[in-house]
Amino acid sequence: MTDPNPGPAIARALLSKDLRTLRDESPAAAVAKAMHWSLSKLNRIENGKVTIQPVEVEALARHYGVADDGELRRLIQLSVASRQRMWWRDEHFDEDFTNYIAFQHDASHLYSYQATFVPALLQTPEYAFAVTSSVLRRPARDRQVRNVVDVRLKRQETVLERMRGEFPPQLSFAIDEAVLLRPVGGDDVMAAQLDHLAEMATRAHVRIVVLPLRLGVHPGLGGPFELLTFSEDADLDVVFIETPASDFLLTDTEDTATFRDIMDELLATDPAGDSLHRALTAAKAALRQ
């Protein structure tokens, strides 16, 4: 079911797409001149780089010949929704990461493949501190580590809140078995993390697939990624790739389609739905040794 009240990221994306469609073959320079805008402003609006005020949306829509009151209200409402001030706008993140958090807030299906550590949305606080401290090569009490973990926990809280709402998102995770066998933070922290994975898997709308080491090669070996899809429009998929040096947000439909296919193949490795139970049993046994 589609949420009739989209969040700011999907509202901006939908509005940008609609405005590009309305312009059709009209020269962008001519439209910008008619609106008394710079060409760069129109380009940024159509590319979803900036928001557009409701009064500007109405003026632009009327310039394009939109006369239907219902359609005008829909476009104006998208503008209003796109300008909501959310918590992540007050943080000092890279643009791609900020946009990813915004899209995650609106996604109808959240996918993640991880080969090195537990996906961010499934981490306990203790595990998050341990893995972030290692990745950043800083002590767990370091301010940068705390900031990263705080944001990660806010992302979890946002998703869990949506799962309790009227339009809960679907969550699908594919995790390499090695992730569960690596005792991040020590045995006690890892044992609690394994229990948390088991608890999360019991929730509606959550699916966790573990790729056994004996599986050998699989399409996820190209690297970890997160994929977001949206019930409002299949062309709005986004992929987020995180590295120690920089992050990347992919929005091109050909690029995102590749990752959607990879995710489908990874999830299909567990048709019986018992891979997590088997992997957790083995991981807990390894901790006791």
Rank of each mutant, 00 (worst) to 15 (best):
L276G: 08
E166K: 11
D90W: 04
G186D: 04
Q170H: 06
T258P: 01
D187P: 01
T132Y: 07
L211C: 02
S82Q: 14
V217D: 15
D255A: 12
G222M: 06
D96A: 15
F129I: 06
L276V: 09
A282Y: 00
G48I: 09
A29D: 07
D69L: 15
A234I: 13
R141N: 12
I101W: 00
Q193A: 12
E226C: 05
P119N: 12
L19F: 12
D142L: 10
V131W: 00
I10T: 06
K17R: 15
T51I: 15
M1T: 08
L287C: 02
R146L: 11
N43G: 08
A67R: 13
L160C: 00
H109F: 03
T116W: 04
H196Q: 10
Y113D: 01
H92L: 13
V151T: 14
Y127R: 02
W37L: 11
P27C: 07
R137I: 02
A13S: 06
D270V: 15
D94E: 14
G185D: 01
D187L: 08
L267I: 12
S172A: 09
L15E: 08
L110S: 08
L160R: 00
K154N: 11
E232F: 03
L19Q: 06
D68S: 13
F129P: 02
V149H: 04
A130Y: 08
A272S: 13
Q114G: 14
R182S: 04
L60P: 11
A28D: 03
E254F: 12
K41S: 05
V80W: 05
P4Q: 03
R164C: 01
T132K: 00
D24L: 08
W87Q: 10
F248C: 09
L211E: 07
T2G: 10
A257M: 05
L287A: 01
N43W: 12
L267Y: 09
F93H: 05
G65M: 13
A32K: 12
R83S: 11
L39D: 07
D255P: 02
P219G: 03
D261E: 10
D270E: 06
I10R: 02
A30K: 14
Y100N: 03
R62Y: 09
Y113G: 02
P139G: 09
R146F: 11
G223H: 15
R20I: 07
V55D: 14
L287V: 03
S38A: 10
T269R: 11
R182M: 05
H218Y: 07
V210D: 01
F248P: 00
P183L: 02
D90C: 09
L121V: 06
I175D: 04
N147I: 02
L122K: 02
V50G: 09
L250Y: 05
E242I: 12
D188T: 06
L266A: 10
K154I: 13
S82L: 14
E242P: 04
T158V: 13
V206R: 00
V66W: 00
G165Y: 01
